[in-house]
Simulated scan of single mutants.
Amino acid sequence: MTEQSAPGTDRLSSVATAARILREFGKHSTQLGVSQLARRVGVNKSTTHRIIWTLVDEGLLERVEETGLFRLTTTMRSLGASAETAQRLHEAATTPLDELRRYTAGTLHVAILDGTDVLYVERREGPGAIPVFRSVGSRNAAHATSTGKVLLAFLPAERQARLVEGMRLSPKTSRTITSRPEFLAELQRVRRQGYAENRGESEPGMCSVAAPIRDPLGQVVASVSVAEQVESVDAGLRHLVAPIVETAARISSGLGWNR
Rank of each mutant, 00 (worst) to 15 (best):
P216A: 13
S202T: 05
T30Y: 07
N140Y: 07
E158K: 07
K45G: 04
K172F: 14
S78A: 12
V64C: 12
A105S: 12
D215R: 08
S78F: 02
G106T: 02
F25L: 10
R50V: 12
K27P: 00
L60F: 04
R101N: 03
A235W: 00
G218H: 01
V241G: 08
Q87W: 02
A83Y: 09
E165P: 00
V118E: 02
V221N: 05
F154R: 04
L100M: 10
V245M: 15
A16Y: 00
N44P: 14
R199A: 13
T95V: 15
A144T: 12
G200W: 01
V190H: 03
H28M: 08
D234Q: 13
V230S: 03
T176W: 08
A86D: 07
M1C: 09
E246V: 09
Y120F: 15
G200V: 04
V132C: 07
V43D: 00
L60W: 05
V34Y: 04
A227F: 01
L89A: 08
E58L: 13
S82T: 05
S170L: 14
Y120D: 00
I130K: 02
S138C: 12
I52A: 06
H239C: 01
A6K: 05
S29Q: 03
L217F: 02
A222D: 04
H90C: 07
H109Q: 07
S225P: 07
A161K: 09
R189S: 15
Q87E: 14
C207G: 06
A83D: 10
L100F: 06
L184R: 13
T178M: 14
T2I: 11
T116N: 14
T2F: 11
E182P: 11
A142E: 05
R189N: 10
E165W: 01
S35T: 13
L240C: 06
L108M: 14
